[in-house]
Design a protein around this nucleic acid. Sequence first.
DNA 1: CTTAAATAGTTAATAATATGAACGACACTA
DNA 2: TAGTGTCGTTCATATTATTAACTATTTAAG
Lengths: 147, 147
Amino acid sequence: MTLQAQRLEDLVGAIMDCCQDRMLFQCKSFGLPQAELKCLMLFGQDRYLTTKGISQSMEVAKSRVTIIVDGLVQKGLVERTHDPKDARVVLLSLTAEGRRKHKEIASFVEKMPLRILGQLDPQERKDVLAALDNLRNAMQTVKEQMI
Amino acid sequence: MTLQAQRLEDLVGAIMDCCQDRMLFQCKSFGLPQAELKCLMLFGQDRYLTTKGISQSMEVAKSRVTIIVDGLVQKGLVERTHDPKDARVVLLSLTAEGRRKHKEIASFVEKMPLRILGQLDPQERKDVLAALDNLRNAMQTVKEQMI
DNA sequence: CTTAAATAGTTAATAATATGAACGACACTA
DNA sequence: TAGTGTCGTTCATATTATTAACTATTTAAG
């Protein structure tokens, strides 16, 4: 089983590298740092986001979100407005330019998993997804034991 | 296929998160920043490493390696010595404390994939590895097309 | 044998990622 | 209305990482 363990490490490592490279490529293509790109893509269905909400979605400190949003505001992609119902809250929304960029990135992001699945035939697709499900459960179980 | 694509993204994302959490847990447990821990673990069979060699293994700039090694030297885990054959070269080796720590971390690291595989029965193990192989190939193919 | 090019490592300037503590402004509750 | 909690920001600090400039050597060309 030690051999299988080594193989697992290598395969998972290679897959992680692919994901990382893909992220770097996206960032370079769209001229945004990783954190700003991720933040921009949170503006999906919701018209307004808040610092706190983004902080929870991205699992980073609120102070970090302030900095990330500063970048997006400077780039003209996001606007800050006051919440009329609660003067403590800052409402964040996409500008026209921000919506354009969001769409552009979304169409790129959505294509990637489709292209990956396109490399596999229908049976392989099912097998891969089933196996990943097993693997994720196994990893999450081990993770919980770890703590 | 769009549904499968979404599932693929979710599963790969969850697996990535597990890997990241595991790394954070290791770093906390052993009291080392990620980069220093990774660097320490490069001291396997080779008695001596060089800045350049580490730079290539870790795929970071040489100047970054200088900083990382500074940390390990300060913590008493690594020593710098001169290469008698080439005065430009700095030879890096583990101290006794460094070897102890390396062993300690290695035994933890090796257990992880075994524990994950232990969650699966023998047939599932084979299936998971075969599927990951397929997935890695598909992702690498797409990656090459991307550039 | 000397000069020019290449190599190894470090330092400094800068950027991105991230946290926690302290703070100001506001909301809510007793 | 006084105290407590919440929202966002600023500041100090740490980690990760790069590029450019520099020092000290080695090596290769003439």
